[in-house]
Write a protein that binds this DNA or RNA. Structure first.
Lengths: 144, 144
DNA sequence: CTAAGTGCTCTAGCTACTATAGGTTCAAGG
DNA sequence: CCTTGAACCTATAGTAGCTAGAGCACTTAG
């Protein structure tokens, strides 16, 4: 049985994050020691590794919740898991495309900045006028 | 003078977002009509276009705040603006690299999923075991 | 036995918005 | 002139996915 600190250091997940996952029901409520401290089994460790890995691959907590419940029922067909992974792949691909366009624009901005006063700074100028851009970045959410 | 609705539709920024930008001081407080409705000048329109464009390019509101104050002082040297843009470019490049690795992993997961039961689903299996991955995705923040 | 370290709960904060409730003002039609 | 419906107002709370802090209790090494 691991304490929360050991579990955290062995998975690379911060302690408050582990408690948060328990709070939102992603991890089951941990057993407690006589002194009320959380104790984790090997199973809990595995589950947290699964969550961490899926987060690293960019899955949302909602998607992970679904994937976990699928992995808890190994006799179910796996089409659902496949669909979740495919959706995530599509999301990643669209972010990639968008970021590539952003990169192009930013490079152009940075390279062209030759003036030494703000008044003829290319960065500021481009930001003021999208028509100076060559790609159609913009559109959806900028956090992609 | 534009109402907030016109300003929103002409810039593609939602009305609550405009009010939010005013609230956090990114836009100056708008003049008001006798009936207390916000009225915007051409200058405010330009400023909002600038903000929107920078957001589309992935700049944080903090970075935009700095860029705006630079663009308000056109006699300053432009090294600072350049630095902000370069930092953003570096950020975008690192996200790109990370997303490319994620894409590789997700593609592998999806393609290899041949079984039709969860019990031999590659997606679930890979998520349980990072050593089945070929790239070193993981590391930093997963939202990249 | 004591002090450092680790754990506990609870609350509030972060980014960048978005949504809702409940009320006011404006513009157009009758 | 009056009404109706769209557009506006404020204020508060919610979203994701944590993170940080306060103020305690417990545990372990010396």
């Amino acid at each position: 049985m691991l304490t929360i600190g050991k579990l955290g250091s062995s998975t690379g997940v911060k302690i408050p994050t582990i408690r948060y996952y328990e709070q939102i029901g992603l991890l089951p409520e941990a057993e407690r020691s006589p002194g009320n401290q959380r104790l984790y089994t090997h199973k809990a460790h595995e589950r947290l590794v699964f969550i961490r890995h899926a987060r690293d691959l960019g899955f949302s907590l909602e998607a992970i919740r679904d994937l976990l419940s699928l992995s808890d029922n190994p006799d179910q067909p796996c089409a659902a898991a496949d669909a979740i992974a495919k959706a995530q792949l599509a999301e990643v691909e669209s972010r990639l495309a968008r970021l590539a366009a952003l990169k192009t624009e930013l490079e152009r901005m940075v390279v062209q900045c030759a003036g030494d006063r703000i008044s003829d700074c290319r960065v500021i100028e481009v930001l003021s006028d999208h028509s100076l851009c060559i790609t159609d970045h913009a559109i959806e959410d900028a956090n992609s």
